[in-house]
Nucleic acid binder design. Structure first.
Lengths: 220, 220
DNA sequence: CGCTAAATAGTACGTGTGTACTAAATTAGT
DNA sequence: ACTAATTTAGTACACACGTACTATTTAGCG
């Protein structure tokens, strides 16, 4: 029978402690990776005792869940803010989204946090579900722009084009992110992305997307 | 004073054991992630004792190093084979590379191994160096094609376009890989990528790449 | 004030970890 | 067939881990 604890952080003191905990956990995740993330280290980083940490997060999994939620919320808040200031013109809107996301990759937190999340999602159901939700939300404004730029595409095709654009930008993380070899070229990469995505979104046809090709590759 | 052991796997028996070890380690890395990878689990998976495992890999880091080398060699071997059967026509060559890489993402091993590698590279110097080398080699044939498709670009610009194409494809891993939500659309994603990259490689200009844009985003 | 609940610290237990070490078994060469 | 090198198994240790549990301190409220 599990010992039930509250620790919902109702008082201001509690909320502050939770922030200390989440920041400590995030720092460790980013600086040392998930394999080095432990309850004891988090407690030390938050300058509280292990017992107190357990008061708020009875299990490590509870902490991880909240850590992922919290970290992703920070990104989504910024992203939503960008959306509110959006232009009606689909080209300008798309340009601003691309610029925002690609340049955000240079943020040290983003550079290391997201690869950890992707790796986690391969083995943790919650991380996997969270990823789906986050990127689905990122794709919404992309789909809006694409639909306007290329009305001939079906809904499913618009979704796939948006998925391509979104995943394409994520892939740059490991190369142009903070501390990475090509970090100096991040603006030029954003330029290439913008030019490439805009032209593609405008010119791609249903036939381009749907045609079947012989593979010749072996799936193990 | 460290106990010095050989375990270089000189005899056939030794080489077989090393393969058992590497396969076991790889399976655990892929199925459970790096945080769950332990010497004991590897030994059990390889059906040998911990002592024997230590004979070949005195430290866990030694094992990780060899595991990364071995896993990446498997991919590079396939990639080199593709290169040898390459067409002279830059468009066809580029098409075949894109199709190979994107469809390879559907391979369960690739889907989970690479995100682990990317996360590792953020905290492990060896993984980081290895990644640089691998992707540099992948970019070489891409650069060849781009140079032919668009001779007006400078060497640096060709490199950046190749980097964009390569990283763009890697980004699809988390979305169209094995077991992922969009896995069914992997061929269509390959089509979009092919169409998009080819048009971009042909039409992009130096000005597109180099122009400066106001950012307005904050880098923490 | 006093009292109740929230918050914090401290301790302890069982388990898993990396790795050092020793000894037995197997293999290969002369 | 003997011998030396290689390979294998087994044991042990110190430490870090997640977590359960208890006791103490602090804060809010009548």
């Amino acid at each position: 029978m599990r010992n039930i604890r509250k620790g919902t952080g109702e008082s201001r003191r509690g909320k502050e402690t939770i922030l200390l905990i989440l920041n400590s956990a995030k720092t460790i995740l980013i600086e040392q990776g998930y394999s080095k993330l432990s309850m004891r280290k988090v407690a030390v980083g938050a300058q509280i005792s292990v017992g107190n940490l357990q008061y708020y997060y009875p299990s490590k999994n509870d902490l991880l869940k909240d850590l992922l939620d919290h970290s992703i919320d920070e990104f989504m808040d910024e992203f939503e803010r960008l959306r509110l200031g959006a232009n009606n013109d689909p080209e300008l809107h798309l340009r601003s989204i691309i610029n925002f996301i690609v340049l955000d990759l240079g943020n040290p937190t983003t550079t290391t946090f997201y690869p950890e999340l992707w790796a986690l999602a391969n083995h943790d159901e919650y991380a996997d579900k969270l990823m789906d939700e986050v990127y689905a939300r990122v794709r919404i404004p992309l789909e809006d722009c694409i639909k306007q730029l290329n009305p001939a595409l079906s809904v499913e095709q618009v979704q796939k084009v948006a998925l391509f654009i979104s995943s394409s930008m994520e892939g740059m993380t490991m190369f142009v992110g903070h501390g990475k070899v090509w970090n100096d070229s991040i603006q030029q990469m954003a330029n290439i992305a913008t030019m490439s995505f805009l032209a593609m979104a405008r010119n791609i046809t249903s036939e381009d997307i749907e045609k079947e090709i012989q593979t010749g590759s072996s799936h193990n």
